[in-house]
Simulated assay, not measured.
Amino acid sequence: MASSNSMHLIVLPGDGIGPEITAAAVAVLEAASDRFDLGLRLEHDIAGYASLERHGTTVRGELLEKVRAADGLVLGPMSTFDYTDESKGGVNPSMFFRKNLDLFANVRPARTYPGVPHHAAQDFDLVVVRENTEGFYADRNMESGGSEILVTPDVCISMRRITRACCERIARAAFRLAAARKRHVSIVHKANVLKIGDGIFIEECRKVAAEFPEVVVDDFIIDAMCAHVVRAPARFDVIVTTNMFGDILSDLTAELSGSLGLGGSVNAGTRYAMAQAAHGSAPDIAGQDRANPFSLILSTAQLLDWHADRLGSATFAAASRAIEAAVEEAVAAGESTPDVGGHFGTAATGAGIAQRVRAMAGTA
C-alpha cells in the first residue's frame, strides 16, 4: 500500500480518442504531482484494440496482477460495444476491472458550469452513486457464465442479482459522501414492480441512513426521478441507486449539465479505484485533436480524492480540488474544446489545465 505522499497508477490509453484525452489527463496529473509533491508514479500499458492486435486479447491476465500491485488505474475510453466474443479475446476491459477489483461504487458527479449552455431548468450540482457489481448486468452476476439465458431462439430470460451486502456498502458510500456535501440522499428504485429486490435495496439504505441522522433522506421511483431531475435538478444532492438505473440516470444528469464531456467518473472499491471517462471512444473524431478531455481529467481528480480519503491525506485532497478548480477556470476562460464553448484542441486544453494547476497558490 502506498504512503500518504505517493501513489502508483497504471495508465491504459484505450481506443479511439482514448490516447488523446489520456495524454491530456496525464499532463494534468504530472502537474498536480509536481505542484503538491504527490510522488505519483505513472506506469503505462495497453488494453483494448492495441492489446488485441499485439497479444490476441483486449486484457491480459498479467495486466490484472500489475493493477493489483498498484494503487489505482486510469482507463481511457474503450470500444466495448465492439468486443462481442470473449473466446476470441474480446473482453470488455471496463467490466473486467470493475469485477475483478470489486469496484462496487460508480460515483458520477454532474454539475453546470458558468458560461456553458445546459439543458436543465436551473443550475445544479449533484452526484449519482451507482452500485457497480450486480443488478441487471449479465456479465457480473454469476461466478461462472452469464445471467442471460436463451431458452429458445425466441425466448430469453435475464436475471438480476441483489444482495444485502452490496446494497449496504453502496448506501454507506452514498451517505458518507452526502455528509461531506449538502446532507441529502435520494434513494432511487422500482419497488412498486421489483418488490423483493428493490425492497431489499431500500431496507438496507434506510438502515445505513439511521447512522447519519444529519442527512435528509427521500426516495423516488426511477421513472418519476427522471422527470424530477429534468424539471428541478437543484433539489438533489446525492442520488443512490442500483446498477442499471444508475447507468441510465448518470448519463441523463451529465447530459443535462451541458455535455457528457463535463462529467467525471470513478469506480471505487475498498482497495482499488479506477478513473474512467463517462463517455465512449468516439472513433469518428479520433486523431483530430477535437475530443474534450475534461471528463477523464475530472475523473483523475476523483481518483486522487479517493486516495486522499483512504489514507487521510490532506495533500491529495488539495490536489484533487486544484484540478477541479482549474477545469472550472478554463471553462470560464474559453480555454476548452468547442463542444463546451471554447477554442482549443484536445492537447492545448490539457496543457492549459496543467499550467493552471502548476500555478495554483494557497491550495495545499
Results as ranks from 00 to 15, higher is better:
243 N>Q: 04
6 S>V: 00
165 A>Y: 08
144 S>P: 00
164 R>E: 10
108 R>V: 12
363 T>R: 15
102 D>H: 13
68 R>T: 06
336 S>T: 15
104 F>I: 02
13 P>F: 13
362 G>C: 04
278 A>F: 14
285 I>C: 03
298 L>F: 08
78 M>L: 12
2 A>D: 11
72 G>R: 09
195 K>T: 15
91 V>A: 04
214 E>D: 13
234 A>S: 15
188 V>S: 04
335 E>N: 14
360 M>D: 02
19 P>N: 05
273 A>L: 08
127 V>A: 13
141 N>R: 03
18 G>I: 09
70 A>T: 02
24 A>R: 06
122 Q>M: 14
31 A>E: 00
14 G>C: 08
29 L>S: 00
137 Y>V: 00
225 M>E: 08
48 G>Y: 03
187 I>D: 01
302 Q>F: 14
231 R>S: 10
299 S>L: 07
105 A>S: 15
181 R>A: 14
308 A>H: 03
273 A>G: 04
7 M>A: 08
162 I>V: 14
289 D>V: 10
129 V>Y: 06
129 V>Q: 06
316 F>H: 15
337 T>C: 12
93 P>G: 02
242 T>Y: 08
211 E>D: 14
251 D>K: 05
261 G>H: 03
121 A>W: 00
361 A>P: 10
265 S>W: 09
20 E>A: 09
177 L>M: 14
98 R>I: 05
166 C>E: 11
27 A>Q: 14
294 F>Q: 06
193 V>Q: 03
304 L>T: 07
270 T>H: 14
343 H>K: 12
353 I>C: 03
